[in-house]
Design a protein around this nucleic acid. Sequence first.
RNA 1: GCAGCUGUAGCUCAGUUGGUUAGAGCGCCGGUCUGUGGAACCGGAGGUCGGUGGUUCGAGCCCACCCAGCUGUACCA
Length: 487
Amino acid sequence: MAKEKSSKLKARLPRGLADRGAGDLAATREMLETIRQVYERYGFEALETPFIEYTDALGKFLPDQDRPNEGVFSFQDDDEQWLSLRYDLTAPLARHVAEHFDALPKPFRSYRAGWVFRNEKPGPGRFRQFMQFDADTVGAPTVAADAEICMMMADTLDALGLAGKYVIKVNNRKVLDGVLEAIGLGGEANAGRRLTVLRAIDKFDKVGAAGVRDLLGPGRWENPEAKSGDFTKGAGLDEAQSDVVLSMLRPGGATGIDNAAFAAGAGELAEIGALVEAAGYGERVKIDPSVVRGLEYYTGPVFEAELTFEVTDEKGRPVRFGSVGGGGRYDGLVGRFRSEPVPATGFSIGVSRLASALGYLRDGAATSFGPVVVLVMDRDRVADYMKMTSRLRSAGIRAEMYLGNPKNIGNQMKYADRRNSPCVVIQGSNEREAGEVQIKDLIEGARAAEAITDNAAWREARPAQFSCPETELVDKVREVLARHGIG
RNA sequence: GCAGCUGUAGCUCAGUUGGUUAGAGCGCCGGUCUGUGGAACCGGAGGUCGGUGGUUCGAGCCCACCCAGCUGUACCA
């Protein structure tokens, strides 16, 4: 008993997770709908798969010898089989397609949105639960499918109001493989070093050409000048090898490399370039040799959508959003389940990150209005107030009767204020006798009251309040809502 | 994982060379207040001072270890 106080549960959320309020939800809903419409227009169809899959269907087959299954939330079923929360939407799609292969039209074009989960260290803009919105074409080997996906991403970002503020970068894993082969890193024995080289290239944006050179060679200190902080082990390439890799990152890319992989990759890139150019997307979709992505399961073209604008956060620090989506061709993924190879290509939008970028862009979150509040002026007439509320609801207007302690009208007004109500409905005995109601426009009232500094005067003035016959309640409320653009 | 920084109320912080019962502002709940949302006044709840051990007559303060958070870095299939 004495310990009761200290044994109270602490209300807290695990790190990397977030509750989302009305404003957030509304913005996300609108955004998802915009994306959905674009995808539909391109002829993709909806699909939903569960949050949970067998662990082996998710990622065990991805040749990730680095850290198998780390970063995935997993648990065992009662038959001891391992299950996991999905960490992306691509692996579940591959499972779905493989499972229903015979019933699906090929190429199969589908899209899906949903939560994915990663058990990784969270950071700014990185959560352990976040939403993705994917579109994939399965069963189409042609690079036209890749080009189409890129163009659709461009159209999607345009539709979201980001025209001119992003670039879709395209590269090809075969080009990278060709370069690596040319410097003697081909073959199974060098898989680990290849990975290190790819990761170094991936950091080009962050550390620059000199940083990449360090990472390709001996390694790099967190603070290069002081040689202090954390040390990242390099790939151990010599100068000549590094030169070749770095030359690839310059505009124009690598030259003088003569092997099959490089030629195939360069050819595909040129083809994609020609397709997007011909369709008028040349400014939005660009070849960029520094894009690596996905490190393991991509087999051909890879894409990345990057926002190119900068904003500052509430503390005045610059915020870079960078990548808000990416994808590529994964010809091996569905084939894990089947004896024949199944080509596939897709793109994934990071909904949560993109939503926060859009939020910054719209300087300040749009306020979402609450319901109309019907005040309780006379405790004995609750039935009448509920009836009024009901009339508003029947007319399609969000409305509620005040359910707290009604003894003080001021408290009811405060409640409505806090709910962001556009207006309140007041009917005391005076109005009742006259067959009227008072409607107070809280939004207009707040605006009108800005000039009033004295609280007594503010009360007296009752700004933006008018009375009307009770029969016109719905129409008048509707007028107030319309004035503020509330549907 | 590694490195640096930081831990006192829901939030922002104060707290003397180690000294009694750890404070403030804001926020929250209630009241003044049964006819009006920005105010005022009054009252209240809320703390194992991140944890454990140590030094000391005495620790929020000093020491050791641990934990958590933040930032960077690595990883991100």
